Simulated scan of single mutants.
Amino acid sequence: MLGTFVSIVSVSSMALGSAAWSAAALTGLCQALVAALLMNVAIVGINQVYDVEIDKVNKPYLPLASGDLSMQQAIGIVAATAALSLLLGVLSGSPALLATLALSLLLGVLYSMELPFMRWKRSPWLAALCILAVRAVMVQLGFFLHMQHALGVTGGVTGGNFIVTRPLGFTMSFMLLFSVVIALFKDLPDVKGDTQAGVQTFSVRHGTKIVFWTCVGLLMAAYAGGIAFALTSPEPWSRLPVALGHAALAALLWGRSAKVNVGRKGELTEHYMFVWKLFYAEYLIIPFLR
């Protein structure tokens, strides 16, 4: 929830650019935040409803797996939060916000539900596609365009054709690479449960060590790209915070990764959560991109 909050504020700030926060901008931000947080609950809830047996092995502390929530209560929460989120999207009058919410829900359903042609999480490629679509494209593009709609400006739209700005283009590319890592890394702590359930993730197929260091290498490449982006920025004032920010995060990643025992589920889980912190730490840098 905190990560969703940070990412939306960051992308909205990027769309705002050098303009001041106005009443219209704050209204647009609040619309995005409330609707997106509700949808976040719904999508995570769908996953837990259909993964309850797997979670009893991998994550027994979750509400359904532990018995803190009944299945009926969980389904009620999912239905209510999804419906309210979509209603807020409609009431906002923003096509970009509504499309982002609806497509996120659709992908959440395709990813988790045990129905014909669904349960995409069983396929490492389709699972990665879901995460990439949401984290790398829809969050950046959807909330960027929603903020511009709230401001009543065309911004990056000329003659009806969308033009990707330099900061938006970098952010989407960076988050694409980072989302690949998250899609791979998320299964590392769950090898035992996934093997029992017949879920053939990359971690099950190729082993935790290979997937772990592949993820670390991809992230280091992403941070190198961030430093290169900073050094070519047309605005001198933005170069230092962007370059130093990416260098600091790369150093943290390398230092932590070198200490992880990939044979221990607890350490993999802890490192996976650390990777998510790195992911959302990037959103602290994004407003400085020029």
Rank of each mutant, 00 (worst) to 15 (best):
L64T: 02
D68N: 05
L26S: 12
L64Q: 01
L86T: 06
L244G: 07
G159D: 09
A258F: 08
H271Y: 15
A248E: 04
L16R: 13
L98T: 05
M175A: 03
L240E: 04
V157W: 14
R166K: 03
L101S: 11
W237M: 07
L126N: 05
L87W: 13
K277R: 08
Y111E: 07
T81H: 10
A243T: 08
A222D: 14
L218V: 15
E267T: 09
L91D: 00
G207S: 09
P189M: 00
P189Y: 01
S238H: 12
K56W: 02
K121L: 09
A224P: 02
I54W: 01
I43W: 00
W237P: 00
W213V: 10
A258T: 10
L168H: 04
D194L: 00
A251D: 03
V191M: 04
M172P: 02
G198M: 07
L231T: 09
V275T: 14
S173P: 01
M71R: 13
V49D: 00
A230N: 08
M71Y: 10
L33A: 12
D187Y: 08
A79F: 11
A42H: 01
L278D: 02
K209E: 15
A79T: 12
F202Y: 15
G108D: 10
P189E: 01
S94T: 05
V11D: 06
G245H: 01
S238W: 05
V52H: 01
S70Y: 03
G198Q: 05
Y272I: 03
H149Q: 14
L188N: 03
V9G: 05
L151P: 06
F178A: 11
Q148S: 06
I286N: 04
L249C: 04
W254V: 14
P241L: 08
P236H: 03
Y50K: 01
A74N: 10
T208Y: 00
R135M: 09
K56D: 01
P287L: 02
A82M: 13
T214M: 13
L88C: 13
E267S: 13
M39A: 10
V11K: 07
H246N: 15
